[in-house]
Design a protein around this nucleic acid. Structure first.
Lengths: 345, 345
DNA sequence: TTGAAAGCGTTACCAA
DNA sequence: TTGGTAACGCTTTCAA
């Protein structure tokens, strides 16, 4: 590793190229009025010195850091990964960089992250869900940059929203189960203190059962998220012990649904003949499992893409700024063998 | 959203608290000599104004940005997610922030990311693997901060290394298969142009087969990574068409192994009686699948933790800086039902 | 198209 | 323990 006691600055490049630093600054960005001759001379000088622009200084001076701060509950989650992918894809064109943090489904950790991130002076901030500590909410409200809450439909949004109704998503599954003729229907997952989206699904699930006049007792609350396959299997064991008559089961995510399904299979139960299974999130796993698992698709990647577009819109100087504040996604049910009656296949 | 035409600065806080900006700067960091009275006065003033430190300015002035740049091939990958978790956990104590980018297994994209990241003046940079474009390698070599290559054992390391031998990992699986009495052994995955780690596993696999004097023809190259479950299933179909006599199969990752296994099951083959399956990566899925899938554990989280410790060490002013450059992890085989002969269970 | 001067908000350094 | 001064490396702004 060559020891570089000091990285070259714009001034060094300017000296070598025989121009002023200001011209270097311009020459290094596109769409600036610099003659081709000067520009290539400067490029050569920069290359020779191994010059690398210092965005820290640039950001301080221009008050545009190029950061979009994003917090998600978990990095090891295909849904949020998809959202992030959609986000970065759209953002790439804008030269914006994502500053990513994960909260582990903990609002206190979210607060810590948001505080750290705001120091970086991001040009917008995206958080997952509507649950925040009071202090975090206050910080977001007066941070002076666009705030997006995603993956949820908050009752009192801080700024923009790109999300869907988790309750409605769960209702889709209940309606599907009922349409397939199942009546003794259960749910696994949904921790009120941490996974508010899971909890919303649980509540929507209950409400939908009630709307159909069905028994609502077959509920197993999960451990703290992330709800793993293993916990799905564990909860399934409890469920079968307590309500062996259960006909159909929704899990808070496809991962726990897979765990629940394999537990059933281990116990010799057939899916869906003995028990129907539904998940959430449209994971690859749900499609690839044997049998494929019925799930709900909320187009995670699209959430990210839309969020990025909202930001682009808000940051573009053109005063086209949409007044729209809620960008609502419609969850879709993907009916698969794990819940389809033989006669309907 | 309250319109804040201008965020308050340290000077505003200093005025309100009746001290100098310098004292504010000190009061806001721990372990600085400021009297308790002054400190709390300043804290109150900062709170009242809703002051948020500007790390951009702080970084410019102190030349310490608090960023550790990290590139991984994919965000939607439990292994790299675990590495990242280990990394951030250790780094949290240091007040370092991870600047994360994913390359999609593309060295050109890695180059783009590294260039972007170096502008942020990170205090260290961590990349995955040894394959870089020439330009990227040059940038890393002369960036002036510690460089770590992880998840691999490069022949010509740029700086520090925290990794393991992918070839050796594959050899573990071959030896296991052979020990179980399998002889007609195949491999799925390993794209030389992109997934060099997968390719290394493939090569190690071949070498191990040869060492045992076994036939090395049963190889199916995968599509470009990430190798999904679906591609595992697809490759399995090809494999069974071409070599229906195959007795044991290793896949480049647990995901493709799961896809391959479900494809076998769909075709009525029993695991491991008709065909044994092995994966890589110790995903939850491998443990939870039916039957559980034999895999290789490289302790992904540990890779991240060690990388973070190496960085802490390198950045600490104490000249304890370890001369050690290669931090080698030992892959471990987790033998499970998907490859264990009945008699050995 | 190019340049000079004046910050951007913070911290290093030295002095009190 | 506190404060004054001078950067840090760039961009904004205005002028040539």
């Amino acid at each position: 590793m060559t020891k570089n006691p000091k990285q070259p600055t714009m001034i060094d490049v300017a000296h070598l190229a025989g121009v002023s630093p200001m011209t270097v600054s311009r020459a290094l960005k596109p769409n600036t009025s610099v003659s081709e001759a000067t520009r290539s001379k400067i490029r050569a000088a920069a290359d020779e010195l191994g010059y690398v622009l210092d965005s820290t200084a640039a950001g301080l001076s221009s008050r545009r850091t190029g950061f979009i701060a994003v917090t998600i509950p978990s990095i090891n989650n295909a849904n949020f990964a998809d959202t992030l992918r959609g986000l970065t894809q759209v953002l790439r064109a804008t030269n914006m960089q994502v500053l990513l943090g994960y909260t582990d489904y903990d609002v206190a950790e979210e607060e810590r992250l948001v505080e750290q991130f705001l120091r970086r002076r991001p040009e917008a901030i995206i958080v997952t869900g509507h649950a925040h500590t009071d202090r975090c909410r206050r910080m977001l409200e007066k941070c002076g940059v666009p705030v997006i809450e995603m993956w949820d439909l908050p009752e009192n949004p801080i700024g923009q929203v790109v999300g869907f109704s988790n309750a409605q998503a769960a209702k889709l599954m209940v309606d599907h189960f009922v349409g397939q003729g199942y009546r003794k229907i259960g749910f696994i997952g949904g921790d009120p203190s941490r996974d508010t989206r899971g909890q919303d699904r649980r509540q929507g699930f209950l409400a939908a059962l009630e709307a159909h006049g069905l028994d609502t007792s077959r509920m197993i609350a999960a451990q703290r998220p992330p709800i793993t396959m293993r916990e799905g299997a564990h909860s399934m064991r409890l469920m079968l012990e307590k309500w062996p008559d259960i006909e159909a089961l929704m899990c808070v995510s496809d991962l726990s649904a897979f765990g629940a399904m394999t537990e059933c299979q281990r116990q010799g139960l057939r899916i869906p003949d003995d028990i129907a299974i539904g998940g959430f999130g449209a994971y690859d796993l749900a499609e690839q499992a044997l049998p494929p698992i019925t799930t709900i698709d909320v187009s995670s990647e699209n959430i990210g893409r839309i969020a990025a577009q909202v930001i682009q819109n808000l940051l573009s100087s053109e005063a086209t700024k949409t007044s729209e504040t809620i960008h609502r996604i419609e969850p879709k049910l993907l009916a698969r063998d794990s819940s389809l009656r033989h006669t309907e296949r």
